[in-house]
Amino acid sequence: MAQNRFHTGSGPSQRQLRVGELIRRTLSDVLMRAEVHDPDLNRHSITVGEVKASPDLKVATAYVMPLGGHDANDALAALRRNQAELRHHVAKAMSLKYAPQLRFVLDETFDRMDDTRRMFADERVRRDIALDDDQEDDRKDDL
């Protein structure tokens, strides 16, 4: 009986993670050294937070954010405009059968972290956490 070619676990395979990290490093280096011939793209300092590769490694989604989050839409448009040149740099740096198609998405993890910090700074939440800690201490004392 033929086996499934793709990883069937709940998360990405080791190969997907490894290829995604190599693409992330390559994109970061290319953007840092301003190797793309587009002044609009080179004026942005862009962070590549994560790259997720599809199971067949033909599509890679890069989660990016310009420094400080300023002009995020302009930076995203510049990355999408220069997608072919960036793909060429990635293909040259890696030895894959296919050069993955690059997709760029704004990285929203920084926004979620700020929202989480604001939530934990709320007085009601701090009070609830303190109550939970007190109850946990009482349980330990009973043992």
Rank of each mutant, 00 (worst) to 15 (best):
D128L: 11
R33K: 08
T8F: 04
G20I: 02
A34Y: 00
G9M: 08
P100K: 09
A2E: 15
L67M: 09
A93P: 05
A93V: 04
D122Q: 11
R126Q: 15
P55L: 04
D137I: 15
L31H: 03
D122F: 09
V48C: 02
D40K: 06
G68D: 08
P55Y: 04
V90D: 06
L131A: 13
E108I: 14
R127G: 12
M113L: 13
S95N: 08
V105S: 12
E85I: 05
M113W: 14
N4M: 08
R24L: 05
M65D: 07
A78Q: 04
S45T: 09
E21S: 09
M94Q: 09
R124S: 08
V59Y: 01
V90A: 10
L57C: 11
R18A: 08
N73H: 05
Q14E: 10
A34Q: 15
H7Y: 11
F120L: 14
L76A: 03
D142S: 15
F104K: 05
R117F: 11
A34K: 15
E21K: 12
L57M: 10
D111C: 13
N82W: 01
D56A: 09
R81Y: 07
F104T: 00
E136G: 07
D114K: 11
H44C: 05
G20N: 01
F110C: 14
H88C: 15
L79A: 02
Y98L: 12
M94E: 09
V125P: 09
N82H: 02
A2N: 13
M94A: 10
S54C: 05
D111G: 15
H89K: 10
A60R: 01
A84N: 13
K92F: 10
R24Q: 03
D74P: 02
A72Y: 03
N73D: 07
S95A: 10
G68A: 08
E85C: 08
P12K: 04
S10R: 09
K140A: 13
D128A: 12
L31V: 00
E108N: 13
T26M: 01
L57R: 08
K52I: 11
E50G: 03
M32G: 02
H70V: 08
Y63N: 06
Q3I: 15
T116K: 11
M65P: 00
A34C: 14
V36K: 05
M1A: 12
T26A: 07
T26I: 03
L106I: 14
D142A: 15
D132W: 00
G68P: 06
V51A: 04
T109W: 08
N42I: 06
R112L: 14
T47M: 10
D137K: 12
A99C: 12
D74L: 04
E108R: 14
N82S: 06
R87L: 09
M1E: 11
R33P: 02
V48I: 10
Q14W: 04
L96K: 07
T26G: 05
R33Y: 05
R112H: 14
Q135P: 06
D38T: 02
A2F: 11
V36S: 04
T47A: 12
L27Q: 03
F120K: 07
V105Y: 15
Q101H: 08
